[in-house]
Nucleic acid binder design. Structure first.
Length: 685
DNA sequence: GTGACCGTTCTCTAGACAGCATGTC
DNA sequence: CTAGAGAACGGTCAC
């Protein structure tokens, strides 16, 4: 809890009069307690601050205060492109402030970014910019990191911490402001960043959390809520009871003038819950709902699109990653404008853009993870619940976890009483270390094992586990990289490294990226992907020209770990295999040489899907032929284009006479332009 | 033969970042 | 001890 603090008024802020006026115009007079605490902690005076506070408790203002008072340009780093967009637009409203944005799909040239007061970017984009030597990074006076608790994420956490560590070196003295969800160990993050910790559970709209036990809901403030489950169904299974209960909770909330979010486990269940709810008309405004449905239908003629439009007519939406981006954005904005009463969603919505509702219902608290059913992390559930309570609209927010008489107590203990998990660095994972060691060497920040270790020393991992000796791990990683021809490892050297950093007694090895390694690092693909591409290029060189087709390049690219796999249905397995045999000459690997037959089949399926798309197949056709969502087609194509570019760059550095990658890439980009409603924006508005 | 009905078996499962270089009315 | 929804399948029975 924050201690007693004198109120801080907008007029007290060391910010331009225009900005103060802007705040007043949007109804801000006095700062929220966590914001005041951040000011107290020196946020406007260049101090490093870690703010571990709930969503919607005013993080954006804290960030703005830091950025506007910084003595130079500022960077706002986010984990999601959609979030970058959202923040870009909100910062652009600030008077007298120029804002730029930089994400993989939405980007301005470096020189322009250097001229902005504020740049919004994804963390990966920042990492990539650093690797490629973008100059704007070095002039930064302030860096705000949104959702720092993602430091604990398996793949993206390490890039966040390495980026932050190198950023502090590239721009010495930058003010670091880190915004975190409530976690168990915010003080670890704060001490790593040498920052003041502001910790609070204060929210502008109070939140009560409750558990449904098959009979009624008991909230943590002691109140209860009857749930009127229609007794039409008798002898139901547990699952049916759960969805009937969530339907009742959703409808109850809407009846009393609220909006609701319902979280379920899978895409299919999000859609089927939506269809179940859409049986009743829940639209706050019928005309607006009809307009929305028309707009949705306008985007694509996919069966998913039709279902979404149909649900929307009743004021119901669903939301998951299988949706085309445009549909997702439409659902989000329609909900914000109160043209939808409910969204049935997978966890995408929990960490995405701002979509507050009066009530949040979490129906599924377990998830299938590949081998087993596992319980959702507390942090994730809290983020879902935290969406409850619309400022200025709701008297309170409520979150309900749906269980039954058997599980209710367990849910209560786990998610209501217990706190969230601690953030733990994942940098020690070999895979993560491999990519970051390569990048640090390739971009010239280190040239020996000693200097790499020196850099890693500034990392969250080193801060958290000072006793772990990374040098052994580093040796195996450099060995692997050199086996991939990405890194040259020299023998122990007496030169270069300063004596005081050479903690590794018997000297340190010289490290240098090969030209392949440099390309891999610049292209931002993982080392294993690079190795795979190199291997593919070499076998293509040895193939008969007639056998090298678009499928060849796509096959190589899709077999790469940077390509997300799809699920292979049992039913399609035989068909995919037949396809592979029919086109065996074009593929670079035969099934018997694949170390993982399943993965090989998935790669073939993806290559085929993207190939057919490039041949002009409509998204609709692909969606029902390959059991993927429209959004999956979109993201597969985008990713393929990226990897084909990397393949081409590697072919060039190998000096190989291979141009399939580039040819196929161009063809994909062209068909993307031809596909209506599917173009990717290239320039900020 | 056919269609309604019902119990059993089978299938399937969240999410999402990155490169680069031009063209359009 | 712990998955569970829903589609697909297959069988029965009445007419």
């Amino acid at each position: 809890m924050t201690g007693p603090l004198a109120g801080v008024h907008v007029s007290d802020l060391p910010v331009s009069a225009a900005v103060r006026e802007h705040y007043r115009a949007s109804g801000i007079e006095e700062l929220y307690p966590p914001q005041a605490a951040a000011v107290e902690a020196g946020i406007t005076e260049g101090e490093n601050v870690v703010a571990a506070i709930p969503t919607a408790s005013g993080k954006t203002l804290i960030a703005e205060l830091a950025m506007l008072t910084a003595d130079g340009p500022a960077l706002y780093a986010v984990p999601l492109r959609a979030l970058a967009r959202e923040k870009y637009e909100s910062f652009a409203d600030l008077p007298g402030v120029s804002v730029g944005i930089s994400t993989g799909d939405f980007d301005s040239p470096d020189e322009e970014l250097g001229a902005e007061d504020v740049v919004v970017a994804t963390a990966e984009k920042v990492d990539s910019a650093i690797r490629n030597g973008a100059s704007w990074v070095e002039d930064l006076a302030c860096v705000v990191v949104d959702e720092v608790h993602l430091l604990g994420r398996e793949r993206r956490g390490p890039t966040l911490e390495v980026t932050l560590a190198t950023l502090q070196r590239r721009a010495p003295g930058v003010q670091i402001v880190a915004l975190s969800a409530t976690v168990d160990n915010p003080e670890d993050v704060a001490s790593w960043l040498d920052a003041e910790l502001v910790e609070s559970t204060w929210r502008p709209v109070s939140l009560r959390t409750g558990v449904y036990d098959g009979d009624d809901v008991t909230f943590d403030d002691g109140s209860t809520l009857d749930v009127d489950v229609s007794d039409a169904d008798e002898g139901d299974t547990d699952g049916e009871r759960d969805t009937e209960a969530t339907a009742a909770l959703v409808e109850g909330s809407i009846d009393s003038g609220g909006q609701c979010l319902a979280f379920v486990r899978s895409r299919r269940e999000a859609e089927s819950l939506a269809m179940r709810l859409a049986e009743d008309d829940l639209a706050p405004d019928g005309d607006a709902a009809a307009d929305l449905a028309a707009e949705i239908r306008d985007v694509d003629g996919t069966s998913t699109g039709h279902r979404l439009a149909e649900a929307a007519e009743s004021g119901v939406g669903f939301h998951h990653a299988g949706l085309v981006n445009e549909h997702r954005a439409l659902v989000e904005s329609a909900f914000r404008e109160r043209n939808l009463g409910v969204i049935c969603a997978t966890p995408t919505l929990a960490a995405g853009v701002n979509v507050p509702a009066r009530r949040v219902v979490v129906r599924d608290l377990e998830r299938y993870t590949g081998e087993e059913m596992s319980k959702l992390p507390v942090l994730e559930v809290h983020q879902m619940c935290g969406r409850a309570g619309r400022p200025h609209l709701d008297p309170y927010g409520e979150a309900v976890l749906v269980g039954d008489e058997r599980t209710a107590e367990d849910l209560w203990d786990r998610y209501v009483d217990a706190g969230p998990e601690a953030v733990e660095s994942q940098l020690a994972a070999r895979e993560a270390l491999r990519t970051h060691v390569l990048s640090v060497v390739a971009s010239g920040f280190a040239d020996s094992t000693a200097s790499v270790l020196d850099l890693l020393d500034a990392t969250f991992f080193a801060h958290q586990s000072p006793d772990v000796d990374l040098s052994g791990l580093l040796d195996t990683v450099t060995g692997e990289l050199s086996g991939m021809e990405l890194l040259d490892v020299g023998e122990a050297t007496a030169e270069t490294t300063d004596a005081d950093t050479a903690a590794t007694g018997d000297g340190s090895d010289a490290l240098a990226a090969t030209s392949l390694g440099e390309t891999v690092s610049r292209q931002y693909v993982r080392p294993e992907t690079g190795a795979r591409l190199i291997e593919g290029i070499r076998t293509i060189e040895g193939m008969a020209d007639d056998d090298v087709t678009a499928l060849t390049a796509l096959g190589v690219v899709c077999a790469t770990p940077d390509m997300r796999g799809t699920y292979l249905g049992n039913r399609e397995r035989a068909d995919v295999y037949r396809y592979a045999s029919r086109h065996a000459a074009a593929f670079t690997t035969a099934p018997e040489e694949a170390d993982d037959f399943e993965a090989w089949l998935c790669a073939v399926k993806l290559a085929r899907l993207v190939f057919e798309w490039s041949e002009g197949a409509s998204i609709e056709a692909l969606v029902d032929r390959y059991r993927v969502g429209p959004g999956d087609v979109e993201s597969h194509v985008e990713r393929t284009v990226w990897l084909l570019g990397a393949g081409d760059a590697l072919a060039a550095t190998l000096d190989a006479d291979v141009d399939v990658f580039d040819r196929v890439r161009r063809r994909l980009v062209d068909s993307a332009d031809d596909t209506p409603g599917d173009g990717v924006d290239r320039q900020p508005r």
